[in-house]
Design a binder for these strands. Sequence first.
DNA 1: ACCTGAACACCGTTCAAGT
DNA 2: ACCTGAACACCGTTCAAGT
Lengths: 205, 205
Amino acid sequence: MRLNREQVLTAALDLLDEVGLDQLTMRRLSTALGVQNGATYWHFRSKSALLEAMADELLAGVAAVPAGPWDVRVTDLARRLRRALLSRRDGARVYSAVFFPLPNALAYGDAMIGALLEAGLSPRDAAWTADTVTYHVVAHTIEHQLASAGEGPERLTAAVSPYPNLAAAIEFVPAPHPDEHFEHGLRLIVTGIRAETPTPAGPDR
Amino acid sequence: MRLNREQVLTAALDLLDEVGLDQLTMRRLSTALGVQNGATYWHFRSKSALLEAMADELLAGVAAVPAGPWDVRVTDLARRLRRALLSRRDGARVYSAVFFPLPNALAYGDAMIGALLEAGLSPRDAAWTADTVTYHVVAHTIEHQLASAGEGPERLTAAVSPYPNLAAAIEFVPAPHPDEHFEHGLRLIVTGIRAETPTPAGPDR
DNA sequence: ACCTGAACACCGTTCAAGT
DNA sequence: ACCTGAACACCGTTCAAGT
């Protein structure tokens, strides 16, 4: 049973889809590969090194957005990151479990900051604004992927009844429309960027 | 060694400060309390039930904001949630590890949606906008608390060198100014809300 | 009502030894 | 170079039995 690094990584992502992050275990992975327990450690130093590689594999290609106006590129990058995280079960949680950015995550950050620099932001504001966009993408996707796996809305509906404003909004809280929910926040942030940016040359719009 | 639920909860929060979330273990908690392993299970059904209680304890009082203009209340609520999460080591990760909202989290959500309804948003937009604000608070705080514990910036500086836009912004990426970083994103989002809201009565501002 | 003692079914990681 | 076999040092959870 000769393995290479790529086979281990592919099997790990398949196992993730099958059992989810909480059940993704070095031992289950070895079993799925038909090898003994310690065999995977020859290819990856540790479980967290494997998770880093999985996260970066998830993000392959997200930074490859076409040229265009800055706001289109920002929106496009955010959507592509979201799609990438949705491509595997618990993808967003895998991404957020990794502290250190690998090449595809760096390329995404670079492209996002690049678009914001072209919008006229300072390097500082571009870096911080990129973070706010990314927080929205990742946190929204984590919440959505957790909700898909979680319990029904009955418990929430009951818990919410003493809170008048929550009760008025309850049908949108578990977000039965994840795409619109995501787009709403993304549009909100891009509107904020535009409002804070000194309008560049051009008569209007 | 007679315990009650509150003593277990207090000890758990103290242990969290001492060792961090990853080392917070039912067994270490029992040892800290001077009891046997299974004793804590009489007071909390499971570790996740204990984490739920810890998360809600963290959020005590965050919803108690004074009356005032909607944007002041939104900003105030976001800052108070951040302060609450910062009050304990890994507080933001504890909060995000809990799927189901307990009373203090519900009260926070209710107050946030209430402020946004007064801004003139529909229930749907208020619920979704509240989420975007909260994503920023929680994700920013998780990142900040992880960075405080993590490695130095050397590895990041090296990794970033092939990426021109990241390199230009690198000094702000590990965020040596967490307060300004947080306020930047919060202001951005509130600006976005204001820009999307049909301006209410009043001549200007 | 609340705790002990002991077990069950797992984990990640390491490492000599094999091929 | 790559894997086996076996161990080490842990986990969360359960539960009869004690007081």
